[in-house]
Simulated scan of single mutants.
Amino acid sequence: MTTMTQPVRTHRSATRRLVTSELRLLRRDPLTLTFVLAFPIVSMLIIGGSFGTEADEAFPVNPTHWYVASYFATVIGATGLIMLPVHIASYRERGVLRRLSASGFPRWSFALAQLVIGVSAIVVSGILLLAVAAPVYGVPAVEDPARVAAGILAGSVAFVSIGILLGTLLPSARAAQAVGLMLFFPSFLLGVGGPPPAVLSDALRSIADVLPLKLVTDAVREPWLGIGDGTGPLLVVVAIAVVATALAARRTAL
């Protein structure tokens, strides 16, 4: 009986040690602090106050509430497209993954640790975002908590998995940073933190509608503000999460 359970205990211990180590390193990463913590908050404070507080033809609800709900998705995008790819690619560049494998850590334990780290970063950053928004713009009431939670969870898993996949594919931290920024900022400007969709041209709106980060934003924002149920975007985000998780798991098992 002992020989049957020992590998399971060893693997759980390995994952725990990896998560503890990664959480400690996360606090020392200035890039993480900038993009996952500071950038969404500062952007929300600037853009959120630029359109007043009255609904109009561009905004179906209070514009400040529109951006508070939207910027939660910015945290998800920053984590998956910038923080995790750079972090994992730097490990790969320095041969850390090979050393972990040689030390007896199962490769899936690294992927699981990164999933825990990514989701934890999103939760902490999202709470800070709402804490800052509350006294400045107010936090809009959540009309459909279950659907909002589903959108946040599916979006978080999707983008964390994308981040793990990018980190294992790109050859260096610098390459991961360049690719991450190129993917993040167009998605941010068109789908989350830029001008409202109503003022975009037809071409830009068509591009925005298929961006994964825009889909996550719609899956969260629509049920949050009561301007839709977000079912269509949520289903697509769930599909993206399944595919990205499968690909990331396959890469980390190599």
Rank of each mutant, 00 (worst) to 15 (best):
S172C: 13
V139Q: 12
G138R: 14
A158E: 00
L166T: 03
L153N: 01
L129K: 11
A173D: 04
A150P: 11
L181N: 15
A178V: 07
S161A: 02
T168P: 03
G138S: 04
S172V: 15
P145N: 09
V132R: 09
A173M: 14
L128S: 10
L129E: 02
G151W: 02
P140W: 05
L181R: 02
A150I: 15
P140S: 12
L129S: 03
G151Y: 01
L129V: 02
S125K: 02
L129R: 02
T168A: 05
S156A: 10
P145W: 15
R147A: 10
P135C: 06
L129P: 01
A146H: 14
R147E: 13
V132Y: 07
V148E: 02
V132W: 03
L181D: 05
I164K: 06
L166Y: 01
Q177M: 10
A158V: 02
V148H: 07
L183E: 04
M182R: 15
A175D: 12
S172Q: 02
A150F: 10
L169C: 09
A141N: 15
L128A: 09
A134H: 05
V179K: 04
G126R: 04
A178H: 05
A141W: 05
F159M: 00
A173H: 15
V132F: 13
D144E: 10
L166D: 00
A131G: 13
G126I: 06
V179G: 10
F159Y: 01
V132I: 13
S161W: 03
I127R: 07
V142G: 08
I127H: 05
P145L: 09
V132A: 12
T168F: 09
V124G: 05
S125Y: 03
F184I: 13
V139T: 11
E143K: 06
L166Q: 00
L183G: 14
G138F: 09
L183V: 03
L166G: 12
L169R: 07
P171K: 12
A146L: 13
L183I: 10
A178C: 06
D144G: 07
A176M: 06
E143Y: 13
G180H: 03
G155L: 01
P171V: 03
F184R: 07
S161P: 09
F184W: 12
R147I: 07
G155Q: 05
S125P: 11
L129Q: 04
E143S: 01
L130Y: 05
A133C: 11
A133N: 09
V136A: 09
I127G: 09
A154T: 10
L170A: 13
A134M: 01
G180Q: 10
L183F: 05
Y137L: 03
A158L: 03
D144V: 12
G155E: 01
V179E: 04
P140C: 10
